[in-house]
Design a protein around this nucleic acid. Sequence first.
DNA 1: TTCCAGGGATATA
DNA 2: TATATCCATGGA
Length: 276
Amino acid sequence: MTSFCIDKTPYFDITATLECGQVFRFSPIEGGYTVHALHHVAEVTDRGDRYEVLADDEDFFKGYFDLERDYAAIQTELDDGGTLSEAIAFGKGIHILKQDPIETIFSFIVSQNNHIPRIKGIIERMCDALGEDRDGYHAFPTLKALAGAGEEFYASIGAGYRAAYLDRVAKAMLEVDLQKWRALDTQALRRELMAMHGIGRKVADCILLFGFDRFDVFPVDTWIKKVFAETYPDMPADKMSTLLVQKYGKYSGFVQQWLFYFKRTKKTMDKSNNLS
DNA sequence: TTCCAGGGATATA
DNA sequence: TATATCCATGGA
């Protein structure tokens, strides 16, 4: 274990980053959080003027937390003086974590039509049963372990009707060359993901955003539908997503995350906005 | 108790 | 292409 510090700025907040719905393997501790990612672990503690991070792999977590990106510049460019500015102010410290593709694929299949607290429980039981025992916690399972578990296992940990999806995708992913996938453009990679049984447009876009560093995507879930219910009445989610990517371009993923966190956390939002 | 959740597959027209 | 229905589960 090594220790390092992250300077506290208005543009990185560990609570907003972890609680904004992009990740499920974290738990609060005294003054901070324990974070699990792939087979790694870190404890992040708020020391007032800085975060102190105790991690098994310093370089991994410096990349994971996306510390090099200029979030201030993105926020300035997106400032519209309206609801989006309000959402950005609310979630000013959100960073989009650089998560593992396999972990995001399985996490967001679990997420569909599901509550975040329950998603966390299902993923935790998946890790505890299939992931390597790392003395105190379990790693995210390897693809081989996921593919060997079987549909009945996924049903037994409460995955519901998603059990069949998880089993089929695990077996299918054994045949995938992730390096080739990384080389694809966003549209082509989305097509590959959506060819998997149980991955639709929304889950594919979450995987692209959180697992493949693709920001020209705008996942539309039930909360984003509420945000734009008056701007785009009765519009199917896929069409709404396409329109929003046309509007926000290479910053779509950031916009989506700020709006999602704002809506889901605040529950209420000024409907007379200028996002149209 | 009922509603709903970071939706998707399938059948139908 | 567009709409309706079903799907398991449990938190709120």
